[in-house]
């Protein structure tokens, strides 16, 4: 009970800090929204598949939703935890009787609020400004919910685990953002996944972002577009399996590698 109430308190604190830091807000929260707007405007004249009701915004929406999931979870958590380890915040928290789980609950709360708010904005923008035909049936939204939850869960635990890779807050920017950018390019976020060379698709398939993007395509794209996927179907089963495996691996990594102090100070 105490951990829950402190965890809630930490969530509020995390949100305050997040939205007071303009770089974080832009590069993890606003980025997909800005990109979707830009793509929708730039490619407005292009025919994606008018017959099936796909315009530019609808074409880019799943990728932006998927990128947003990973940015607000993985990137934002990996950056903030490594900064907090480097600047002594974690050590200071550890010196108090705060139950350690409350710290993680605060991160989970932060990710939950920012990712849901971001998705809400993406959806509102698509529906209202860019005239995207959104799914109306329960089946698609059920798929959305579990892909979203697994994606955000993966991103959060992997972000916490990955924070230990960066040895200082200064190096964290490069260590976290560079692989995220590459993954976005090879996972079908900015380009149609089908346009990538086969070997690159295989590489991308090892990481969660490709599966989140594919899951989101299955939610927002017309049903018959699944023939263009690698396997020719949306592969919901495999998507769930891969994401669940990453989630578990992330949890194990966190439990084994998480440190409250910088390396070499114990």
């Amino acid at each position: 009970m105490r951990a829950l109430s402190i965890g809630w308190d930490r969530t509020v604190l995390e949100l305050k800090m997040y939205f007071r830091e303009r770089e974080a807000v832009f590069f993890s929260f606003a980025f997909p929204i800005v990109m979707l707007s830009m793509f929708s405007v730039i490619f407005a004249g292009q025919d994606f598949d008018k017959a099936s009701g796909v315009n530019a915004a609808r074409f880019f929406l799943p990728g932006m939703v998927a990128a947003g999931v990973m940015l607000t979870s993985f990137q934002s958590v990996a950056l903030s935890v490594s900064a907090e380890r480097d600047d002594g915040t974690l050590k200071r928290l550890r010196a108090t009787p705060m139950p350690p789980v409350a710290y993680f609950l605060g991160k989970v709360g932060l990710v939950a609020v920012t990712s849901i708010a971001q998705f809400g904005l993406l959806l509102a923008l698509s529906g209202v400004a860019f005239d995207v035909r959104l799914p109306t049936d329960l089946g698609h939204w059920t798929t959305f919910v579990w892909v979203f939850l697994l994606g955000v869960g993966c991103g959060t635990v992997l972000g916490i685990a990955y924070s230990s890779v960066a040895t200082s807050a200064r190096s964290a920017g490069a260590v976290v953002i560079a692989p995220m950018l590459i993954l976005q390019f090879i996972s079908g976020v900015y380009f149609a996944f089908t346009d990538l060379p086969e070997w690159l698709k295989q590489v991308a398939s090892l990481f969660p972002l490709k599966w989140v993007a594919q899951g989101m395509r299955s939610v927002f794209f017309p049903e018959h577009w699944q023939s263009q996927e690698m396997a020719g179907t949306w592969e919901p089963g495999r998507t769930a399996l891969v994401l669940a495996a990453w989630l578990l691996a992330g949890l194990v990594l966190c439990a084994r590698t998480f440190r409250w102090t910088r390396r070499g100070t114990s």
């Binding site: 305050k16 800090m17 007071r20 830091e21 900064a83 907090e84 600047d87 002594g88 915040t89 050590k91 200071r92 010196a95 108090t96 009787p97």
Partner: peptide, 16 residues
């Protein structure tokens, strides 16, 4: 820990 107070030598990260 509930009975301790700790002021570490270096501490930052509260700026926001």
């Amino acid at each position: 820990r509930d009975r301790l107070g700790v002021v570490l030598q270096t501490s930052s990260g509260l700026d926001l």
